[in-house]
Amino acid sequence: SAGVQMDSRCDYTCLPGYQLEGDRSRVCMEDGRWSGSEPVCVDLEPPKIRCPDSRERIAEPGKLTATVYWDPPRVRDSADGVIKRVMLRGPEPGSEFPEGEHVIRYTAHDQAYNRASCKFSIRVQVRRCPVLRPPQNGYISCTSDGNNYGASCEYLCDGGYERQGSSVRVCQASQHWTGSQPLCAPMQINTDVSSAASLLDQFHEKRRLFVISAPDPSNRYYKMQISMLQQAACGLELRHISTVELLGQPPHELGRIREHRLSPGIIQELRRFLHLTRSHFNAVLLDKAGTDRERFISPVSPDELFIFIDTYLLSEREAARRAQSGDPCE
């Protein structure tokens, strides 16, 4: 059969993506054998991988994170075109990323276990407005992180003070707040009202009322009670308690809330509405909703009154504020 002539030379080449290992050329020798040894084409070239471009995202309104999506990397093997696996190091596409810079890495392996890697970064920015200051005699309660885009802050006043101005402000994408800084002004008590209900409505959700009724200002129990309350003014104010005094018998009745005088008609209506008698010392504690919470027929010490309020009447918001600011009366 036809063969190859002596001294003929054969050159070996590999397909794209493979490298030759062994002799590149072989010569037909006089004894009919080829010089050298049979070379092999091996896949030593790593696959080609290209990651998505790095990107920057703004945190979503009211959140400190951004949901980020991206396409998988483009991977190609120059040898047999087969990619065995692509591994991701980091969160999956569609994950939520917190503020800061995050590096995502991909690694591709071909059938010959060659590998190649790429990476890209995701940067999440949280837009923030200037930090708000609470008003004097008040405080603020904010959502989310307090001053990030989409966060809202509600202005609240201490008991005995009323808000004047914006109640809620929202941090906008422009990094400016809506509205303007409100004030907490002293509560104005209007005693020129037509009914006891109208008087009590002014204190709704703002103050607790400790209503005292006694036969006359010289009543021993009344004098003891007022003396104790005067010495505990700080604790009363801390717990948003206003004292209402209903004294005497018609036609010489006296009613007052601090320096504000009550009309005889309002005094009588309050006593009737709250079931307070003129004949002896008695008192009632109303919560901020105007509900009768405790009654007394003898003077109550401020400590006893404060323990009852702190145990049963404080709202979650009041308790949290107290825990944060401590007790200034100690």
Rank of each mutant, 00 (worst) to 15 (best):
V211N: 05
I212E: 13
P215W: 09
P215C: 15
P215V: 04
D216I: 08
P217R: 07
Y222M: 11
K223R: 09
M224C: 12
Q225I: 06
M228T: 14
L229F: 11
L229I: 05
Q230R: 14
Q230K: 09
Q230W: 08
Q230C: 10
Q230D: 03
Q231W: 06
A232F: 13
C234L: 13
G235W: 13
G235M: 06
L236S: 07
L236K: 04
L236H: 05
L236W: 02
R239P: 03
R239S: 03
H240V: 09
H240N: 10
H240P: 00
T243Y: 00
E245D: 08
E245A: 12
Q249H: 13
Q249W: 14
Q249E: 06
P251T: 04
H252Y: 10
L254G: 00
L254K: 00
I257Q: 14
E259L: 03
E259S: 12
H260E: 12
L262T: 11
S263L: 09
G265Q: 12
L270G: 11
R271N: 02
R272F: 09
R272G: 05
R272I: 07
L274R: 00
L274F: 01
L274W: 00
H275Y: 09
L276Y: 03
T277N: 15
T277D: 10
R278K: 09
R278E: 04
R278N: 02
R278H: 01
S279D: 11
H280V: 03
H280S: 15
H280F: 07
F281G: 14
N282Q: 05
V284A: 01
V284D: 00
L285N: 00
L285E: 00
D287L: 05
K288M: 07
A289F: 00
G290K: 09
G290S: 11
D292R: 02
D292I: 07
R293Y: 00
E294D: 09
E294T: 09
F296Y: 10
S298A: 12
V300S: 07
V300M: 03
V300L: 04
P302H: 08
P302W: 11
D303H: 13
D303Y: 10
E304I: 08
I307Q: 06
F308W: 15
I309E: 08
I309V: 09
I309T: 05
I309A: 02
Y312A: 04
Y312G: 02
L314I: 04
L314N: 07
L314G: 05
E316F: 15
A319Y: 13
A320N: 13
A320W: 04
A320H: 09
R321K: 08
R321D: 14
R322D: 15
A323D: 08
Q324P: 03
S325K: 05
S325Y: 12
P328V: 14
E330V: 14
